[in-house]
Design a protein around this nucleic acid. Structure first.
Lengths: 211, 211
DNA sequence: TATAAATTTCGACTGCGGTCATTTTTTTTA
DNA sequence: TAAAAAAAATGACCGCAGTCGAAATTTATA
């Protein structure tokens, strides 16, 4: 590795660490780029050759952090437990990670759900990683017969993800207290799986009606 | 109405109109508060006695705009058409309105899904109005037997709304082209209604298996 | 109507995010 | 190794969002 590459890696990391530390101590809004640069031992302009803008730091933070969580989940997962349970486990881990620092989390969710124009493929990588983690799990569930096979897996992930976003949003707006999150998520996921329509006549009902 | 009240109303409206006009012409980022204030014939500081900050203008804009759309929808609605059709109609209207000006729309969606801390009850009023418009429609559908009665209506609205947010997000990130929006929404809503699980044994299937 | 109190308007000012021409450092070439 | 080229670092600078105390305007009081 050339001198340049080593320096770049070191600098990027120093900036990221300085930023996170300062954000933790003083909050995002009360930390200036200049402070971050000083703490990282570089000039202000240098910050912008490693990160596009201030928000970009948040993405940089979660890029690393969430990948760890995802890998840990992949390691611990038992793919033959019911899909509901697996999805709740995965998304609760995601929820805890994202909301650990509420200020970062809000910025991160905002960017990942409604990204800036100039940030076209910004979160795509992260999201794709996440979705590609879910793919084999959902595929397996389809094979077991727990999920319909006539819906593309991508769409199934969209369903779960949209409810995840809703839960995070509910927590941020205060509609949902922290100790109600897991139950709410379980209940929403269950309803998604079962559907909002009343079930058609089942065997039991038929027998009842006929008997 | 006192002189003060008249002035306030006039000023607030002048500022809002000036802002919208300038945003339309030059975009949100390229319009400064000072420009807005000048165009409205007031000083810069005065802006801040009518709106908390720059983003607040966007909310002010949609507050009016969306209420019109909602009222129009309420007037035209036939509450006995299938719930799928009604929800698609309503949310497509919402989609068109929100994304008419993409820049405003993104800011608005961001604020309404992940609001700022200092904006606690900000969007609550708007969202509540929207939800309360949906309530009677969904209640009616429950009575007709189109929707399960064991799920609270609030939760049903959350399901639909979360898919709406997903569709808007998909459009913003470019995953979903504009002419695929209605079909995607219809398909997601259908899947939500039917559920992601395979249906239990129905009469036809039973007969097949037994025969 | 004159004066006091309350409310609103105002723009100079502050601090920060982001840019850019210049300087410094590293790599390539001869 | 010396000179030229390429890449990266830097901080003065710009424009703007948001603040604040002073000035202007409206309302209340006597």
């Amino acid at each position: 590795m050339s001198v340049r590459e080593k320096k770049k890696k070191k600098n990027k990391n120093a900036i990221l660490q300085a930023a996170i530390s300062l954000f933790r101590k003083n909050g995002y809004e009360n930390t200036s780029i200049e402070q971050i640069a000083r703490a990282a031992g570089v000039g202000k302009g240098t910050f912008y050759s490693y990160f596009q803008n201030k928000k970009d730091i948040v993405k940089g933070f979660y890029d690393d952090e969430l990948e760890l969580v995802h890998n840990e989940l992949l390691g611990r997962a038992n793919r033959d437990t019911p899909i509901l349970e697996q999805m709740v486990t995965i998304y609760m881990a995601e929820f805890r990670q994202v909301t650990r620092n509420p200020e970062f989390g809000r910025l991160f969710m905002r960017e990942s759900v409604f990204p800036d124009k100039q940030n076209p493929a910004g979160n795509a990588g992260l999201e794709n990683n996440f979705f590609s983690m879910l793919f084999p799990i959902l595929e397996r569930a389809q094979q077991r017969g727990e999920l319909r096979r006539d819906i593309e897996i991508l769409h199934i992930t969209e369903h779960f993800h949209s409810l995840f976003v809703m839960v995070v949003s509910s927590w941020y707006t205060g509609r949902l207290p922290i100790d109600g999150v897991e139950q709410a998520m379980t209940s929403l996921f269950t309803q998604l799986l079962e559907g909002l329509c009343p079930p058609p006549f089942t065997l039991t009902k038929l027998e009842k009606n006929n008997g």
